[in-house]
Simulated scan of single mutants.
Amino acid sequence: MSAALASWTFTSQARSARRARQAARAQLAEWGLQACDYAELLISELVTNAVRHARGLVRMSLSAADGLLRCEVEDSSPVPPSPRAASCDDEGSRGLLLVEVLSCGWGSVPTGRGKLVWFEVPVRMPVRMPAHA
């Protein structure tokens, strides 16, 4: 498969994480790809963090090439993400640890607008059963 690219802009609202998951699911289907089961979870984490910690629009891009899906989320905050250890009673602070453990790789880079946070996970062509004659 040659490289594929798609991007969206979301408002800084809680429902943007759901919209980002839906957009990703539809785009992967259009490309004929299946991401690992937890790709949508990681998309939710990055978009939710962007909505929670930055102001303004959130941009998400997906690209797929060489068996990897790369998700990039850009927001207006220049503060880089930092995984934190959560106590047993914390209701949050585990998202970046999930991204770290479940992705093939992740990171962040500063941009002229703020920062871009990315992760990569494997993708594959869906298994199609042959039609019986």
Rank of each mutant, 00 (worst) to 15 (best):
F10Q: 01
T111I: 07
W8N: 03
E120K: 14
I43D: 08
A50H: 06
K115D: 11
V121A: 09
S63I: 06
V58L: 04
R124P: 01
H53M: 05
Q34F: 00
M129P: 06
C71G: 05
A6M: 01
T111E: 12
A133K: 11
G56F: 10
E40R: 15
V117R: 13
V47E: 07
R84F: 02
E45C: 07
A4G: 05
W31S: 09
A85M: 01
G32Q: 14
E120P: 03
P83S: 10
E40G: 14
G32H: 08
R55A: 12
L46A: 09
L97Q: 13
E45H: 15
F119A: 08
G56Y: 12
S82V: 10
T48H: 14
C71S: 11
G67I: 04
E30V: 09
A65E: 14
G32D: 07
R15M: 02
L68N: 12
A35F: 04
L62D: 07
L46S: 05
G32R: 13
A133C: 07
R18V: 06
V73P: 03
L46P: 04
W8R: 10
G114P: 09
V79K: 13
A35R: 10
E100W: 00
Q22I: 00
S63K: 12
S108A: 12
S7L: 01
V58Q: 10
I43L: 11
D90Q: 08
L5V: 11
A65G: 08
R128P: 00
R84V: 09
L96R: 12
C88S: 06
R19P: 00
P110E: 15
A24R: 03
P126H: 10
R55S: 14
R124Q: 14
R94V: 05
S108M: 06
G114R: 12
V123Y: 08
S44H: 13
S2W: 02
S87R: 13
L69G: 06
W31I: 05
P80F: 05
A86W: 02
T11S: 14
A131F: 03
W31M: 09
L96K: 11
F10L: 02
D90A: 09
D37W: 08
A24G: 11
L28M: 09
D75V: 02
V121E: 07
G112S: 14
W8V: 02
R55Y: 04
M1G: 15
V73G: 02
G92T: 11
R55N: 12
R84C: 04
P80D: 15
A39D: 07
A65Y: 08
V79P: 08
G107A: 10
R55V: 05
E45F: 01
M1I: 02
L5T: 12
C36G: 13
L28G: 07
M60I: 01
P78N: 15
G67Y: 07
Q34P: 01
T9Q: 14
A86V: 04
H132F: 02
C71W: 06
A17Y: 03
R25I: 01
L46R: 08
R25D: 13
L28V: 02
G107V: 06
E40D: 13
S2Y: 02
K115T: 11
L42I: 05
G105C: 03
A26V: 06
